[in-house]
């Protein structure tokens, strides 16, 4: 294929990706070093209230934003270097907490709280998703053919459902005196409220993510199980391998590329966790890195969006993604050069 034909085919897609992915990345990078502020002026205002024997007059200095001819607030952007990063990271408070000998207090700072939760979330769900997915795939493979279609249909439901709504549907089972909360209460014989403390919400969020992603792992592993070499399995049986040994030394090595694939996709997606926080309304207890950026981007009570802080936290989130991707990129570069 000539270069010009190739360019004609790929051009529109590249154009979109450059305009809407690469360009925003650059602007976010620049924004994170800038600060947009409304220009304010200080005016002396004298306010008088009628009084006796003389008017009471108070002069005070007010700050008010400067407006342009259309009535919009005028803003300037100044280069502030790493100030936004410092605002997000709050390293002075971290140092203070460490020198006080109470490192737990680091977790009261939003960014570190979000980082802690995002990492726990990603690393705890990973083995669970792979384990549950593999178990379902093996069990379905064991089943009579007639039922497999129905099982796959039911299994796809948690995967296909809108993430926010999936999280909500689990939340509604527990909220207030919901049926599952009262079930737990009657088992444990004590009063439980699932949304009053962090760790119960965290457990529900972990459960939701496994429930949501395990079907994907299952479908991929199930497809992989169809191509297991039957001859190898038979020779393993002749050599006297037990059921467990066959699984451990024949089936799992065969599925290994798929396990790596699922793990990578899951790491990328779980690191970006966001919908859980919205669905479970957990922002008072547990937040994720992406939610932190989202929170900076939503207008606060006075209608301001803290764009520069959002950009700084977005760039910090990116660091994690880059670390995650390096091994993957190194491997595909090696494959490309070798192939």
């Amino acid at each position: 294929m000539k270069f010009r034909t190739f360019a004609a085919f790929v051009g529109p897609s590249i154009f979109l990706m450059v305009l809407f992915i690469a360009a925003p990345l650059v602007t976010v990078f620049l924004q994170s070093f800038q600060l947009n502020q409304p220009i304010v002026e200080r005016v002396e205002v004298e306010t008088c209230t009628p009084g006796f024997p003389a008017q009471k007059c108070v002069t005070e200095v007010k700050t008010q934003p400067l407006l342009d001819e259309n009535g919009n607030v005028r803003t300037t952007s100044t280069w502030v270097g790493f100030e936004s990063y410092a605002n997000v990271l709050q390293l002075d408070r971290v140092a203070e907490a460490i020198s006080d000998g109470r490192p737990g207090r680091i977790l009261t700072i939003d960014f570190w709280k979000a980082l802690r939760f995002t990492l726990t979330f990603t690393l705890v769900t990973l083995p669970l998703v792979i384990g549950v997915g593999l178990a379902i795939a093996l069990a379905v493979n064991n089943l009579t053919r007639a039922l497999r279609g129905q099982i796959i249909f039911v299994s796809l439901l948690p995967f296909i459902i809108t993430p926010v709504i999936g999280a909500l549907s689990i939340r509604w089972l527990f909220i207030g005196d919901g049926i599952l909360t009262s079930l737990l209460e009657s088992w444990l014989d004590r009063d439980i409220s699932m949304f009053a403390q962090g760790w119960t919400i965290e457990a529900m969020m972990l459960f939701y993510r496994v429930w949501h992603v395990a079907p994907f792992a299952f479908v991929v592993f199930y497809a992989g199980l169809q191509t297991v070499n039957q001859d190898t399995l038979e020779s393993a049986i002749i050599d006297g391998a037990s059921r467990w040994e066959r699984l451990r030394y024949v089936i799992i090595p065969h599925l290994m590329p798929l396990i790596v694939f699922i793990a990578l996709i899951h790491l990328m997606d779980a690191y970006r966790a966001f919908e859980e926080v919205v669905g479970f309304s957990s922002q008072a207890h547990r937040i994720t890195l992406q939610w932190l950026t989202y929170d900076y981007l939503t207008p606060d009570d006075s209608g301001n969006r803290s764009i520069s802080r959002a950009s700084a936290s977005a760039m910090l989130t990116m660091v994690g993604i880059v670390i995650l991707l390096i091994p993957l990129l190194r491997r595909s570069w090696r494959d490309h050069r070798g192939g």
């Binding site: 966001f274 989202y294 969006r305 990116m318 595909s332």
Partner: peptide, 16 residues
Amino acid sequence: LIFRALPHSVLVAGYL
């Protein structure tokens, strides 16, 4: 592939 891994909030911070 790298773009696929980007958190969407990063991009939205650029668009807004």
